[in-house]
Structures are given as structure tokens and as C-alpha cells.
Amino acid sequence: MNDHVRDLASVRDATERLLTAAAKLDNVSAAEPSRLPGWSRGHVLAHLARNADALVNVLAGRPMYASGEARDAEIERDAPRPLNVQLTDLRESAVRFQEAGVAPGDWSRTVELRNGVTDSASRVPFRRWVEVELHHVDLGIGYELEDLPEEFTQREIDFLADRFRGHPDVPAFVIEGDDGRLIPSGRREGEPITVTGRQADLLGWLAGRRDGSALTTDGGPLPALPPL
């Protein structure tokens, strides 16, 4: 069982780190490109605020977003806002998420996210933690994959490996990180390729943040991963 209470605390801490770092920007730098293609830093901040509200919807049993088009339109609408407005919105939406997280509820229930994806309610706080940590890196303001908490990195590698496990378009592979663990992923058929590297590089590859050039295999090319 996921420890949603502990994860909520981790979300709060990660959000404070992000807000403190983003407060050093100004309106000009907030409008500059992020590391995500086609998105400014303002887009990333706007997405984080709207994602917090969307996960409140999930916990309340409502649709995460009205539609994919509505989600995209809200991000485009909010991206150009002044930095102080962005940060206030992000902080207030984070408070709403925390309030939803401490409300009484059945954390073993199944909830629905985007595109028909379902998960346990108890994992929603971890999903929010992922959003905050990885998008902090995406801002390109000095917070790198190497700076992520060790527990987070290990859990997100496990989560993404599980996401690709059994995927018909991903060759079988085994992840071997510098923590010594072996994690199978990809197709269940065929002789798996072992992919070895530092935890940060493995996470970056699995999460689409690095090209995998720092990783090594025991034979054959690095498996191509579909977008998340």
C-alpha cells in the first residue's frame, strides 16, 4: 500500500523548493523557453497549477479535465501571466490539493485519470510528486535530475519500468542501476537487454528527459521508448 500521508508531505516539500527557486525568476525569464519543446517556463508553471486542481477533481470523483482541448486551452491562457500571478496561483492550487489529500476518504478506491487511465487513490499524491519534481527540472533553472531525492528517483524508475512492462512495442530489457537492483521491463517475450547506468540517467531516459547516451547495454541498441 502506498503511504499517501508521507507522499503528501513530500509533495509539500517539493512544491516549496520549486516556489523558492521560481521566485528568483522575473517576467522576462519566465517567458523564456523551458526544456519542454514548445513550452515556456510560464507554460510549465501554469500546467503545474492546473494539474493540482485536476488531481483535486480526481480525488473528488470528477473528471480530471473537461477535455484534452480544455486542458491545453487553460495552459495557453495562463502561460503569459506575470510571474507573481503564476506563483500565487501555484501556491494556492497546491494548498487546495493538500486540503483534498487530508480529507477523509477511502484511499484504496480506484480513481480515473486522463485517457481512461485508472489507479489507486493512494497513488495520486505520488503522481503529483512526480509532476512537481520533473517539471522543476523542466524549468531549466538549476535543478537537475541528479538533485532529485533518492527515494523519489528509485520509485519513479520503478513506476516507469512498470508502465512499459508488457508493452508490445518495447523490446524486453532489464534496468540495472547504481543501486544494484534489477528491474525487468518491456515485452515479456525474448531475451532481455540489460541497460546499465546512473540512477539520474536511467530516470531521464525512462521519463523522456535524456536520450540515453550515457547508458550502456550488454548487446544491441538501447530500446526505443514510446512517449509518456
Rank of each mutant, 00 (worst) to 15 (best):
R210Y: 12
G197H: 04
L148Q: 04
I183Y: 01
A21H: 02
V102E: 05
L145D: 02
A103I: 08
H47G: 04
L59E: 02
A9K: 13
V28W: 10
V137L: 08
L55H: 14
S120Q: 15
H47P: 10
W129V: 02
R123P: 00
A23V: 06
G212A: 06
P33S: 01
L55M: 14
P192A: 00
A79R: 10
P227C: 09
I157P: 06
T153V: 15
S185L: 00
A21S: 13
A103C: 05
L55S: 00
L45T: 03
D119G: 12
R123E: 10
E144M: 11
H136M: 02
W39L: 03
E146V: 15
E112S: 12
R12V: 03
N84D: 13
R181E: 09
G142Q: 04
A23Q: 07
Q199M: 15
A52V: 06
P80F: 13
L148V: 05
P184I: 00
R41A: 10
V130Q: 13
P168T: 05
V195H: 02
V56Q: 00
E131P: 08
P192M: 01
P227M: 03
A73Q: 09
T217M: 08
A9I: 12
L225R: 08
E74P: 07
E144I: 02
R128D: 04
S122C: 10
R17E: 07
D3M: 00
D158L: 14
L222T: 03
P227D: 01
D119E: 11
L203Q: 03
H47V: 10
L83T: 03
S213F: 14
V130D: 11
A52L: 06
N57C: 11
D178S: 11
R210T: 15
S185C: 02
D89L: 15
D26A: 11
I157H: 06
L18K: 06
V44P: 04
Q199W: 08
P33R: 06
H167R: 06
A94E: 01
A224Y: 00
T110D: 01
E92Y: 12
L225K: 09
G177P: 07
V111F: 07
H135I: 12
R163Q: 14
F173N: 00
L59Y: 08
G101R: 05
G42I: 04
Y65Q: 02
G116M: 06
R35Y: 08
D78Y: 15
T118E: 06
L90H: 04
T20H: 04
L83V: 06
G180C: 07
N51R: 14
R109V: 10
G105T: 02
R96S: 08
A66Y: 11
A200K: 07
R77T: 14
V102H: 13
R210I: 11
A70C: 09
H4K: 00
V95L: 12
T196E: 01
I175K: 01
R77I: 08
A60I: 08
P184L: 01
A49M: 08
I157K: 08
P192K: 03
H167G: 00
D7Q: 14
D7M: 13
F126N: 03
T153Y: 13
L36E: 03
F173I: 03
V117W: 12
L228G: 09
P80S: 04
W129F: 11
G116L: 09
A161M: 05
E69Q: 14
D13H: 14
L145S: 06
L134W: 14
R96F: 12
I141A: 08
G166M: 05
R6L: 10
S122N: 13
G197R: 02
